[in-house]
Write a protein that binds this DNA or RNA. Sequence first.
RNA 1: GGGCGGUUAGCUCAGCGGGAGAGCACUACCUUGACAUGGUAGGGGCCAUAGGUUCGAUCCCUAUACCGCCCACCA
Length: 918
Amino acid sequence: MLDKTFNPQDVEKRIAAQWQASGAFACGNRPEAEAFSIVIPPPNVTGRLHIGHALNNSLQDILARFERMRGKDVLWQPGTDHAGIATQLIVERQLAERQMSRIGLGREKFLEEVWKWKAESGGAIVEQQHRLGASADWSRERFTMDEGLSRAVLKVFVELYKQGLIYKDKRLVNWDPRLQTAVSDLEVESLEIKGTLWHVKYPIEDSDRFITVATTRPETMLGDTAVAVHPDDERYRALVGKTAILPLTGRPIPIIADEYSDPEKGTGAVKITPGHDFNDFEVGKRHKLPLINIINKDGTLNNDVPAPYRGLSREAARKKIVADLEAAGLLEKSEPITHAVPHDEKTKTVVLEPFLTEQWYLNVQPLADKAIAAVEKGETKFVPENWANVYFGWLKNIRPWCISRQLWWGHQIPVWYGPAKEYRSSGGERASIFAEETQDAARKAAEDYYGRPVEFFSDEMEYKRAVSPYYQQPWPADWRIPLLREADVLDTWFSSALWPFSTLGWPDKAAELERYYPTNVLVTGFDIIFFWVARMMMMGIHFLGQVPFKTVLIHNRVLDEQGAKMSKTKGNVVDPITLIDEFGADALRFTLAQAAGQSRDMRIGPTRVEAGRNFATKLWNTSRFCEMNGCVTVPGFEPGRVRETVNQWIVAETAQAVADVTAAIEALRFNDAANAAYHFVYDIFCDWYVEITKPIFQSGSNAAQAETRATTAWARDQILKLLHPFMPFITEELWAATATTPRDSLLVVAHWPSIKAQGAEAASAEMHWVIELIKGVRSVRSEMNVPAGAKIPLVLTGADMIAKERMARNKDVIMTLARLTQADPADSIPKGSAQFVLGEAVVALPLGDVIDFAKERARLEKELKKTQGEIDRFDAKLLNEQFVAKAPEEVLAEQREKRTEAAALAARLGDAIGRLQN
RNA sequence: GGGCGGUUAGCUCAGCGGGAGAGCACUACCUUGACAUGGUAGGGGCCAUAGGUUCGAUCCCUAUACCGCCCACCA
């Protein structure tokens, strides 16, 4: 006997263990079946599951379970990402708490610490995915820094390098002065900041005049190498070609004409700081201006600025410079301004600095072209389609991708540097580059190149010591050429971009690659279309010659119940595990699926999940009802052969529900699928079928009871199957608990239903009639304030044979559900009856003294008025010549039919009101 | 500045050319032998505004307003 309520906590763990033990999630055990594959967007290995993950994983799991039940060989590939910056940051913070530092430890020891942290916390998010019920093939779990995946990364890097697509370049990058690493354009977030616009007067050489520039960053003026004005700007025309004296430094800088200068902005004259501004960098290139770098890697001012400012932070320098300018009388004015300032996208606190460094770049242009073409040709489809525009928009304006990071945690770039082969050449100590997948390969390449043995160095200082004595000199005969390993690591997204094939065994010729690539669906959020989706497309096409996935499903973004973006700082993060603890994983999953509509966002919070929990309870209890009435699955039951009308009807309804849910999941419309299942279970099975079968179980014939028991059990089984992708735990539990003999298999590998129901039209019509009758009686009872416990008589008048037969056949049901003392046909309507119209017939409820005539008249008149309004509307249409002439035939016929029905209803209502007066 | 979404019941959202829907909330009644994490019956909407297309517009088009997001933008 089932417990009175479902206790998720007790059940979930046990069921999860059963699934694991059964091996049901493993791919490859259906070699003859069609393959279906999904790769999970790998979460940060040391992170925690948030509600967005829960949605993302739930949708993937629905697909995986659905296709598995449909007999496919499903691979849902799980794994985690090393998340370079985020993880390194956490470990550095932990070290700081122990009064230690990354630099103090050194690279090797520090990485040991990170691996330790990964081991400690790395299981958590996977454990949370298990809590959710994710049916991924956990035996194939991967990590972006696994041996195999790392090999893929190295191979991709080396190939792209040898193809000339990866190169080193010295240009401005977005620099994070706290982490002291470059970040890519995508990792920059512009935030509106209240600042000040200072107008600074630059004296003009050999004159007593000034040119005034406006700036929000006065500290960068120490790196100015020009002042630019627009060539057409009359105000400044005379000054072009003259020289300004940069205040505080006394350095002369030219006044140049460049169209970059916008006469509308600021004063129309703009200071040019090529070393610290992207636009100025371009201006500097055009005018061959010198470039002065004035800051250190940590953001403090360097020794190329006047002594008083050296070592100051950017903020302190700004203050001091403003004060000094003011003291010198060179500050014309200052005004408050709100302007966009680049911040690092992760913490949103650190102001990024355009900074001149040498970095590794990937020229993605040729890859992007192919990625664009693939979507244009439909090889990959976005769902909803409009997200393709976002994808195109970015790829069509793509810029080289800065792939190097000055971090330690990540894939160290497989490049070794050596000294110039011609020692007299002035190439410095890192003149030769060997990009190879392994150190051995690098050794070989270098030894071939130099014709000498080499020696590896990982520390730059040691390397320099080894190499520096031999600049500009012949190398000693026994000298081993020092090779220095590139210290930088790759952007985390570089390895993520390979995920769809690196997890399948590439670069080896793996059978999995053959079978599961391209994957079927990528399920992800729109926030990583650029970061991840586009890059996977590029890498997949480039290295495999095929797109990595056929469909990209972009799902909603999850907001809190107030519609606010969730963030740790706001403290409005909804923890999915808390929701699972409170309401159960099934409740959360079902709620997420129901909310996964076509809009861009969804709002999720406890109240919605509570509704999901209530649905689980309903499912549990209706199963309990089945159990209490001895409804046990009958082997070989044939739904097409049931004889009882109500059973024929529920078979047809079940078939409809199966068709609806199936079509919706296929179309990736999860909300439609969940709602179709919900509607069938709640509004059809529980509300009507179960209620209608109660009288049968009490007083039906043996044959009817037996058939109804079998049909009920069958329908319940179909429900469990239909709901299993959404609510796997409770359905699996019920699947076992409702069986008296062991099931053939776990529900997770049961066959998805496919039902052919034909010839049930008559049964369906009859049941709809019965339901309408019962609803009609209930409605009248309620409006007439008939006590819920009181039983009343019913007579059916004006009914045709069909209606009379319907009532006779379903008398028990009608009397029970409508709480009647009798339900019989009659020739006339008894006095003192409340009435309502049902099809051709009038249903009368002789309430005698109970009836409130005024109330009954009001009720009928309201109904009549409503009907009359409808008739008027139909008439307006049908009398409109244009409508009659132009509307399609079927619409016309439909409107006429509806008008006739309404008129008939009105006539009967009129009669009923007339009789009331007697 | 460029682009993309949204505006439908108190709230959250479906619907997207032929009579306005769901869940939650609300009201009334009901401890009826599956279920109060429940049942029954209800109330509640000029489908943002203004034009247009159409026999017919919540739905298509064009503007407007408001809300939100993305990209570009540090004078």
